[in-house]
Amino acid sequence: MDFSRYLERRWDDLLEQAVQHAAVVALSVLLATAIGVLVGVLTWRSARASGAAISVSAALLTIPSLALLALLIPLLGLGWAPTVVALVVYSLLPIIRNTVAGLRGVDPAILESARGMGLTGRQTMWRIQLPLAWPIILTGVRVSTQMLFAIATIAAYVAGPGLGNEILSGLAGLGSANALNKAVAGTAGVVLLALAFDLAFVGLRRVTTPRGLRV
């Protein structure tokens, strides 16, 4: 069966896998953003604390994903749970690092103004620092998202959702007529999804960057 016929016949399944792939990545990145930004906000002032947070998240990123998934199975079983946890763990480094860099990058004169005007620490963080650091934080989120699309394929091996299933079923049917079609569909699907998200990030960046920073 040629590839276009294969696509036509399996379109609905592929679409569902793609949606699940995107969903698990999006969910994980949202969670990781919440956690990573919080860690960044709590540690940016102290070089030691933020350095430790970055070192730990870098070490976690060094662990091969199949190994991390294996270690999560006894705790969380198979499926979405270990997948999401592993993906969250892997996306922390770019987000934490960029949050720290973004918060550190805010002009000290701006912080002094804010303090001099009587903004509390929390008000300064919410109204001044986070908006100013946002474009850099968002870049970290974007980097993480790109990374997760590839990693998420491996989660299929622990019964995770997404296009990894298509790839693995190609491998399982090695030698059969559709093996190549499956592998190509799965791989290309992941690449296309990643591209689409990257484009979405360009738009998101435009929409969420405060206008005063773009002029």
């Binding site: 002009d107 004169a109 701006i110 912080l111 002094e112 103004s113 804010a114 303090r115 001099g116 005007m117 009587g118 903004l119 509390t120 001044i128 908006p131 100013l132 405060p210 206008r211 005063g212 920073l213």
Partner: peptide, 23 residues
């Protein structure tokens, strides 16, 4: 209270420190 105090004292510095994301 320091923040209360500061809200009633105008403060101008050499680097100006306007918030770039606000009009």
């Amino acid at each position: 209270e320091p923040n209360e105090l500061r809200r009633h004292i105008g403060y101008v510095i050499q680097q100006i420190g306007l918030f770039p994301h606000m009009t």
